[in-house]
Write a protein that binds this DNA or RNA. Sequence first.
RNA 1: GCCCGGAUGGCGGAAUCGGUAGACGCGCCGGUCUCAAACACCGGUGGGGCGACCCAUCCCGGUUCGAUCCCGGGUCCGGGUACCA
Length: 924
Amino acid sequence: MEYNHREIESRWQQRWRDDQTYKCDIDKSKKKFYVLDMFPYPSGAGLHVGHPLGYIASDIYSRFKRLQGYNVLHPMGYDAYGLPAEQYAIQTGQHPEVTTRINIDRYRNQLDKIGFSYDWSREIKTCDPEYYKWTQWAFIKMFGSYYDTKTDKAEPIEKLEAYFNEHGSFDCPAEGSKELIFTADEWKAMSEKEKSDVLMNYRIAYLGNTMVNWCPKLGTVLANDEVSEGVSIRGGYPVEQKMMYQWCLRVSAYAQRLLEGLEKVDWTDSLKETQRNWIGRSEGAEMLFPVADSDEVLEIFTTRADTVFGVTFMVLAPESIYVDKVTTPGQRKAVDEYIKSIKHKTERERMIDKKVSGVFTGAYAVNPLTGKNIPIWVSDYVLAGYGTGAIMAVPAHDSRDYAFAKHFDLPIIPLIEGADVSEESFDAKSGKMINSASAELDLNGLEVKDAIAKTKKFISEKGIGKVKVNYRLRDAIFSRQRYWGEPFPVYYKDGIAHVLDESELPLQLPEVDAYLPTETGEPPLGRAKNWVNKDGYPLELCTMPGFAGSSAYYFRYMDPRNDKALVSKEANDYWRAVDLYIGGTEHATGHLIYSRFWNKFLYDLGEVCEDEPFRKLINQGMIQGRSNFVYRIKDTNTFVSYGLKDEYEVTPIHVDVNIVSNDILDQEAFRNWRPEFKDAEFITEDGKYICGYAVEKMSKSMFNVVNPDDIVERYGADTLRLYEMFLGPLEQSKPWDTNGIDGVNRFIKKLWNLFYKGDQLLVDDSEPTADNLKSLHKLIKKVTGDIELFSFNTSIAAFMICVNELAAQKCHSRKVLSELLIVLAPFAPHVTEELWHSAIGNTTTICDAEWPEFNEDYLKESTVNYAVSFNGKTRYNISAAADAPKEEVEKLALEHEAASRWLDGKTVRKIIVVPGKIVNIVAN
RNA sequence: GCCCGGAUGGCGGAAUCGGUAGACGCGCCGGUCUCAAACACCGGUGGGGCGACCCAUCCCGGUUCGAUCCCGGGUCCGGGUACCA
């Protein structure tokens, strides 16, 4: 029998499907293990060779855990809502559901060819009503909850209403968008609409008038993590800031718990750090600066309370509500003009344009510590969304304030001993304070750290400020003015938002005649006929964002067909949290924050039993493309090989990597590739046309996309799986280079040749030799350890060594070869399954086998090698009995024929012997 | 700017605890097979030197008997993030 990957792989894939080999169910007699991939958005382009990298890794780990006796949950599904399908729908009129279904089928087809051990009976799609029912359900729960600062968890909004009835807003234990002040009597006297507005201020899912990232080109708002450098991540369109009334999720209420939760999970430090930065906790103080000759008081946030003596001006964000209140009549015109000039700039323009700009309001604030009057300015370098939208400026010790002060010629007072502020500010938080004393407070001579603490204490005692922790993390904007997303289970009655009853879910996405906004500028759902609730009240026109459906999908896999609950208590208690989660780093600040928030919310409600969703997380690296180039001689149709190109004036042209092999161009295929190259001439090196290469993003326009289907067709899924893992460390980004794939393909053939020689079966029942057992157990030990470390590339190297050794030993022992197959099965499931049956003679699948334990006894060496060094330089090797005492090893080292040459007249000072490793002789 | 990674042969990468640097694979060179080529198989392959040996893990310094690994300083590359007070 010859190794025939096509026949073997299709046969076993069919068998696994027919037998439902990988279907899993709750089995309390076994330990569970939940392995999850970040589910894909099924794009129209299909999978390229980079996509399955993480899936292969998780599949290897799942199969490994299964062989170790765990009950493994390893599901897959699709994140089916998204902008590309809708953009395509706008262009073609094709319903996004149709495109999405086609894309999903294609993905499934491609995934199936790679031989994954998914339990497809648990497949989910976020656009299925049975699925998004639970997304809508969670939204209703969030609408019905507030975040209680006393119990530090989400609580039913009714509890807050009861509190208002009793105490009004006094000492209100709820996280709110803004501080509201009312008595119990005032609360009771409020109209229904007024009460609803008050409660909206505290709900976890709330309607809020917030500054949003508005993308005019996409016609929708975007979340912070959907925007990078002022443009949308999908499409790269400009994004501007706009005030809009939108649904939001009070993620910020969970900031501290999201931060603390990171301590409990097994993620990489860099990912945790990224999340910490995104949450951006900063401890500081809120301080009050009264406005001179006015009743207004400016509230500011600072982390440098110690620098109050150096405050020489105040700055307001252009959007700050204070601007209007403090501007003097004389400055009104200048301020209005400045604000107008800022408004028509997009966020991107504001970022690119780093020129200092601002305007004086005409008003002065009183420094509460020095009593001095300081001018109040307006500038766009102060952000409205962070802190209070107003700052105290300390130009000596903040580079932004410094630039502003220099530009407008404002005073700069140094506060730290030895700080030279003539050229730049001194931003470091260290040194001894100077110029910082008043009758009541003296900071001079103190270290910055101590001065901050002393000032904080002073201002809170004096009532001119309070200690405050600020977070950079903002609430998530949850409305999208789009069609292809989950409809909100919300209707409006008398201008008040109400949620549907849970029994009315799912609220299905209606049909529309076009996927564009209406003539009046309403979102696409405005086109739907009868878009009203059962009593005829209008339903919400926005839909939910992409992250809505992906925030709790891992619960649904535990119990995917349950129509009574997101997940049954029984299923959740058994599967609990994801034990291993594999996906890309691009989700560090989006999906991985939202999921953790969503999970904690459900945990607060008692709906789920774990408060962190993902115990261990691995970020697989990106697979980049490796592009090939041909070099056309200018103004000709002649192409010159890479090594000779410098002799001509050439233009590099991307060439399809699929007609290049080992950087050698298939010249005939090139002529047929495109009409303009039909008559191409080549200047070759020894008849070969060598292409240049570069590492770039894998994309159609670079002609460097490698399709996994082509690799599977040519080499087989097992080769693809092994090669993807062999390319390098899982977490590292690396270019795809098909050049090396023959190596792992050869390995599989060598493996095959251990079992068959032509049609002859070689496997017999001979007893394994000591060498056989040593080769095998060395492998088992190495692979068992490597899999736990996700070091799959080194595992594969170990397989290659083992197979080479067993071949050299002419090992045909059934015992040895069958264990070799089990260990290899997670990596190359098809060929191992085939040999397991045809050559070893088993009738059950290899998936039911047991992972072999390695036996240290077989690995013991009778002799060990020592490297002998003189003064640290390794000179020669000796071999000694494994259990030889130190003295004997020393003696052997010194008796070696080369020893005298190295010692030559020197005297030995000491000898260091590291057992089994090295003998270092120190001499002088 | 700040935070986090990384730098090892012609290439991808190994060295998992501070102990023989370069595992494994690609490529390349040589050989076997073939009329020939491809495939396959076998052998060699960091650089220098006839050799004993010498030089090599981005650069400079330190700790150590011994450093790819630990510490200090620097260069370059990649990723994240940003007027966050």
